[in-house]
Write a protein that binds this DNA or RNA. Sequence first.
DNA 1: TATGCAGATATTGGATCCAATTTACAATAT
DNA 2: ATATTGTAAATTGGATCCAATATCTGCATA
Lengths: 225, 225
Amino acid sequence: MRETDAVKLQPVDISKTASVADIVFEALRKAIIEGDLKDGEPLRQDEIARLFNTSRIPVREAITMLEQQGLVTTQRYKGAVVASIAPDEVAEIFDFRALVEGTVIKAAVERMSDESRRMARQCHEAFSSSTDPMSWGDLNRQFHYTLYQDSGLPYHLGIVNNALDRIDRYLRAQLMLSNGRARAHDEHLGILEACEAGKADLAADLTRRHILGAKTSLLDHLKRK
Amino acid sequence: MRETDAVKLQPVDISKTASVADIVFEALRKAIIEGDLKDGEPLRQDEIARLFNTSRIPVREAITMLEQQGLVTTQRYKGAVVASIAPDEVAEIFDFRALVEGTVIKAAVERMSDESRRMARQCHEAFSSSTDPMSWGDLNRQFHYTLYQDSGLPYHLGIVNNALDRIDRYLRAQLMLSNGRARAHDEHLGILEACEAGKADLAADLTRRHILGAKTSLLDHLKRK
DNA sequence: TATGCAGATATTGGATCCAATTTACAATAT
DNA sequence: ATATTGTAAATTGGATCCAATATCTGCATA
C-alpha cells in the first residue's frame, strides 16, 4: 500500500492500548475516589483477579500504581487497604489546592478560548440542574477542569488531579451537606463570570476562597461527628 | 520472655522492611535522578533482574513505580525508557517549585526549631566547602530539605520531593555551570540568615527568587547548545 | 473463662513458564 | 540498490507455581 493511497482502515496503535493492569487500576481508582471502597477496606488480590477474569499479576501492578498515587497503603505480606486520610491531611490538601488551583486558573483565564468559556458555562448549568446527587461530584470536577484546561500548565494539572483524587470522597460528602451544593453553585457562578470577563486575578481569588470555604465547611462537619 | 526482661534483640518489624521491588526502585530512581541513566535509555527487565539477582517480577513492579513518578515512560510491548523532559516542562516545574517551596519555607520558619537552624547552617557549610562536584547536588538538596522539614506540611513536602526528582539531573548540571555554585552559595546564605532571624516572608521571597533564578540560568544554558 | 499454643488455611511475594508482540536480519523480488 | 517478505531472536505481558508470612481455629491448660 503506497502512502498516497486512501486510508481505508482506522489504524490503531497497539502500543498505546491499555494493558490489563491499566484497566484494573482505573476501575479500582474510580471505586476508591467515589467512595464505593471505604477507608481501610482491604484489597484482596485473588478476589480482584477473579472479578476481572485475570491473574494476580496485573492486579498487583494496579495496586502498586494506586499506592504510588497515595490511594492505598500496603504492608508487606499483609496486603493493601484503601488509604485513610487524617483530618489534618485533608486540611493540608485543601490548602495545597487553593495555592495551586489559584495559580492555574489565573494562567488559564489569560489564554482562555471562547470555546472553553462556552463549555464551562454548560458544565455550570449541568451542575445546577442535575438532580442526581451521585453525579454532582463528577459535574463539579468537570466544571473546574474545563476552567483549567487552557492554562498551558500540564504538570500543574497532573498534580491537581492527583490531589483531587485523594479527597474526592470528602468533596462529594461536602456537596451533599445541607447547603453545600447551593453554595458551590453560587461560588461557581462568580468564578465563571470572572473568567468570562477575563478578570484573571479575580478568578484566582474566588477560586482560592471557594476551596478554602469548602475546607472549613468540611472540617466542621468532620469534627461534629 | 517477660516484658520486663532486658531487650537483647533489636526487634524488626518485617512488615515494614523493604521488598525486592522497593530496593530495585530505589536503585533505579537514584541512577535516573543522578543522571547515570540518560534520557531515553531503555530499561531492560531481564538485564536489571540479572543485576539484582532476582526475577523480572520485582523489576516490573519497580518500573511501574517509576512510571507513576514520571521518571520513566513505557510503551506496551516495547518497554520502559528514562523519561525525557522538554524544556517547557522543565520551566513549568521550576515555576511550580517556586510557588510551593515558597509557601513551605514560610510555614517552616514560623515553627523552626533551633536544632533545625543549626543543622541548616551545617548543611550550608558542607555545601560551601565540598570540592566534589558529584556531591553538590545531594548537599544542595539536603540544605533545602532541612529548611523545610519543620513546615508541618508533609503532603507539600512529598510533592516537592517528586518535583525535585524530575529535574534533579538538570539542577546538578546547573550547579556545575560557570558561576552556578557560587551563586547558589550566596543565595543560600541569604535564605539561611532570613530563617535564623525568623523572617518568614523574606525567606519565602528569597527562596522563590533562588528557584526562578536557577530556572532562567538553566534555560539559557539549554537554549545555547 | 481467659490464655496460650499448634496446626490448618489464607494471603502475599517472588520464580518460572508460556503467549503476544516487537526487533533484527536474511532472503527475495522489483 | 531498494524495498518487501519471512523467519528467528529478543522482549514484554500475563498465568501458574512455590515459598514466606499472616491469620484463623480448635484445643489444652491455668
